[in-house]
Amino acid sequence: MSIKMRMLNWLHCPSMTMLVFAAILLGVMPVFPEPHLLQKVRMLFDGTLVKPVDIFDLFWHGWPILWIVLRLLTPGAETSCRIPNEHGH
């Protein structure tokens, strides 16, 4: 199995339900005064996203959305998670 196929299979391991739940949860937390993801995206468009902690925060609150996008864009998406063991089986 090629490295590309292993990576594509790995993208499909968590269920879509779990990824959507993580995207919603991390996307809106903390809710007050404003969801972090919304705040960081606004900072990115304003050009004020310069501190490393803010860049990390954008990644941390946005990774589930990125995972969902990558999963939806992978051609020939596998419906099950198949990661070969160390012997390639």
Rank of each mutant, 00 (worst) to 15 (best):
S2C: 06
S2A: 07
I3N: 07
K4A: 10
M5H: 09
R6H: 09
R6Y: 06
R6V: 15
M7N: 09
N9P: 06
L11M: 13
H12Y: 03
C13H: 12
M16W: 08
T17M: 07
L19F: 06
L19T: 15
L19P: 07
V20K: 10
V20N: 03
A23K: 07
A23E: 05
L25W: 11
L26P: 01
L26R: 07
L26I: 04
G27I: 02
V28G: 00
V28I: 15
M29D: 00
P30F: 03
P30D: 00
F32W: 08
F32K: 06
P33F: 03
E34D: 00
E34R: 13
H36N: 06
L38D: 01
Q39V: 02
Q39D: 05
K40Y: 06
V41S: 00
R42E: 06
D46C: 01
D46P: 00
G47P: 04
G47R: 03
G47M: 05
T48D: 03
L49E: 02
V50G: 00
K51T: 08
K51H: 11
P52A: 08
P52E: 08
V53I: 12
V53H: 03
V53E: 05
I55L: 10
D57V: 04
D57L: 02
D57K: 02
L58T: 01
F59P: 04
W60E: 06
W60Y: 13
G62M: 10
G62K: 04
W63K: 01
P64I: 01
P64F: 01
I65S: 12
I65H: 11
I65N: 02
I68D: 01
L70F: 15
L70R: 13
R71F: 12
R71L: 14
L72C: 12
L72H: 12
L72W: 14
L73M: 15
L73I: 13
L73K: 15
T74K: 09
T74V: 15
T74P: 03
G76A: 11
G76H: 13
E78W: 11
T79C: 05
T79A: 10
C81M: 14
C81H: 14
I83S: 07
I83G: 08
P84V: 12
E86K: 14
E86P: 09
E86V: 15
E86D: 09
E86A: 14
H89Q: 15
H89C: 12
